[in-house]
Structure formats: C-alpha cells, structure tokens
Write a protein that binds this DNA or RNA. Structure first.
Length: 272
DNA sequence: ACAGCGTCCTGCAGGC
DNA sequence: TGCCTGCAGGACGCTG
C-alpha cells in the first residue's frame, strides 16, 4: 500500500526516467480511475511534455505542458502501480508511450484515482496538511496543539492517519511510529505531553527516512517500484503485521485491535 | 460538530 | 486439491 516512502520512491524513479519526455500515445483499457472521459483524456494528454514530477503527501503530481501548463494528479490508494517497461504489461489499465518506453499504470483493486486538471490545488491534493517528511518540529508541535485543543478525545493513531493534519502517513507507518515513540495508539491526543508529542515527531522522521532509504515496504503484492521491484523495509517492521508475535523490545506478545476500522498492532508493555 | 462505520475492489491466505 | 469465506486498507460519504 503506497504511503509516503513508497510514493517518494516511485516519484524519484519517474523523475529519472521520464523528465523532459513527450507523451506520444495513450492506451486506455480501463477509465474507471479518470476524472474525465477517456477520449478527452487521450486528446488532452497526447503530445504533452512532462516538465516536472513531484510528490505531495501520497499524491503524485506530474506537470505537463502543451501550449499551457496543466497537471496529472495521481493517488495510488491501495494497489496502484507505475511500471516502466519496453512494452505494455499484461494487466495495464492505462499505458503512456514515451518514445522508447511505456509507462504502465496498473491497479489490481481499482481504487486509484487520476485527475487531469488545470490547477492541481483544486484536487484533493490541494486540501491536505503539511508533508510529513518536510514539516519542521516547530510546525508539527504547533499543529499538534491546535488539533489537541480542538479534538482532545481523538485517538493518536487516528490523528496520524488524517491527511488534513499531516500528509503521507498510512496504517503501516502510523503503527511503527507509535511503537518507536512508545505511545499507546489509543491515547487521546489531549492527554499527550509535549515530550510525547516531540517523541512522535522524532520517530516519524526517523522511520520515514529509513523507509525511503530501503525503497519502501512491500508487505504484499500491492507495492512495487517502477521497475517492478519490491521494497525492503518490511524487514524492519516492529509491529505492523506482527500480531501475536513477540515484541522485539521486551518479548511480550503484541496485541492487535481495530482502531477506526484499521488493524492496529502494538505492545501493551512498551507503549503507554 | 464530530465520531465511527460502510463502501469501493480484488488478490490472497486460511479453513475445511 | 479445491472451493469458499473473510480480510486487507485510503479516502470519502453517510448516519446518529
């Protein structure tokens, strides 16, 4: 499931391979994810030049130019993939031909969304909070205080998943951040001390940076980089996917519970 | 106003 | 071995 480190890895790959290239042709096998009719999409994007590729939270923003500047905004959700290959892949939903390669957009579960727009800030990508990787400690703590004052009863795990608070964190990294900062995921944000808030910030930075260095987490088939390779961070997961297994810190069995509809694993002894 | 659940969707794991 | 059921989750919409 692409979260910030996975999207960052994909964006870095796309930048290296697609920057400055022209989209020569588009093949649409499934238009479910598009915000415009397939014919419109094809017409607008054909012969456009890719001038910039960047990440905003979990969104990929591709800056295009054809007379004027416009944008392709992509959210991969659960299973969206971009695979660069010599040809079209078997289950490709949308193929972009770029002179000597195809950019294959695949999405097993059909959850991904693609917007073709003149102003990317008018898509959901323009309505999210500061990026988890870029936010400063000061800004994080200020923002935490605002949310803690407004929603003191909200569980900290839920806050970390809210893209309006900070963007980029999903279920895997939220669980890992709370383990490293030794906070119980069910703690109410109004009860967290400034030291605990600071520890969450530090754990967040540490984990996101390491996960990017390991090219993301491939827990299952869902996430692959643009060459179809899995990430490596699953080797370093302390809690996600480890329910009933032993805590790497204290040896106690990890517990699992649904929090806000999402499976959450933590250590009852280490996380208070 | 806010919390919490259902929905979308399909691959895969586990049970019998 | 093969079928069936249920689980996985990001974001949004609906409900109470």
């Amino acid at each position: 499931m692409p979260e910030l480190p996975e999207v960052e890895t994909i964006v870095r790959n796309l930048k290296e391979n697609l920057g400055g290239k022209i989209i020569r042709a588009v093949k649409i096998n499934s238009s479910r994810s598009l915000n415009v009719p397939p014919a419109v999409f094809k017409k607008k994007i054909s012969r456009a030049k890719i001038v910039q590729i960047r990440r905003v939270g979990k969104y990929i923003i591709i800056h295009l130019i054809k007379g004027k500047v416009f944008y392709l905004v992509v959210h991969l959700r659960m299973s969206g993939q971009f695979i660069i290959a010599a040809g079209l892949k078997e289950k490709v939903r949308i193929g972009f031909y770029l002179k000597n390669c195809w950019l294959n957009f695949l999405d097993a579960r059909n959850f991904a969304r693609i917007w073709l727009v003149n102003d990317w800030k008018k898509t959901p990508a323009g309505r999210i909070g500061p990026d988890a990787l870029k936010i400063t400690r000061k800004e994080f703590l200020e923002r935490f205080s605002i949310f803690a004052r407004r929603f003191p009863q909200k569980m900290v795990k839920v806050l970390l998943l809210e893209q309006e608070f900070i963007s980029g964190i999903g279920n895997i990294y939220a669980a890992e951040i709370l383990f490293l900062s030794r906070i119980n995921p069910k703690r109410k944000i109004g009860s967290l001390t400034s030291i605990e808030q600071k520890n969450i910030f530090l754990a967040m930075k540490k984990i996101l940076r390491k996960a990017i260095a390991r090219r993301g987490t491939s827990f299952d088939y869902a996430y692959r980089d643009t060459r179809g390779r899995p990430g490596d961070f699953q080797r370093y997961l302390n809690v996600y996917g480890r329910a009933q297994e032993q805590c790497r810190r204290c040896g106690r069995n990890l517990v699992s519970e649904k929090i806000a509809g999402r499976t959450t694993v933590w250590c009852r002894r280490c996380q208070n």
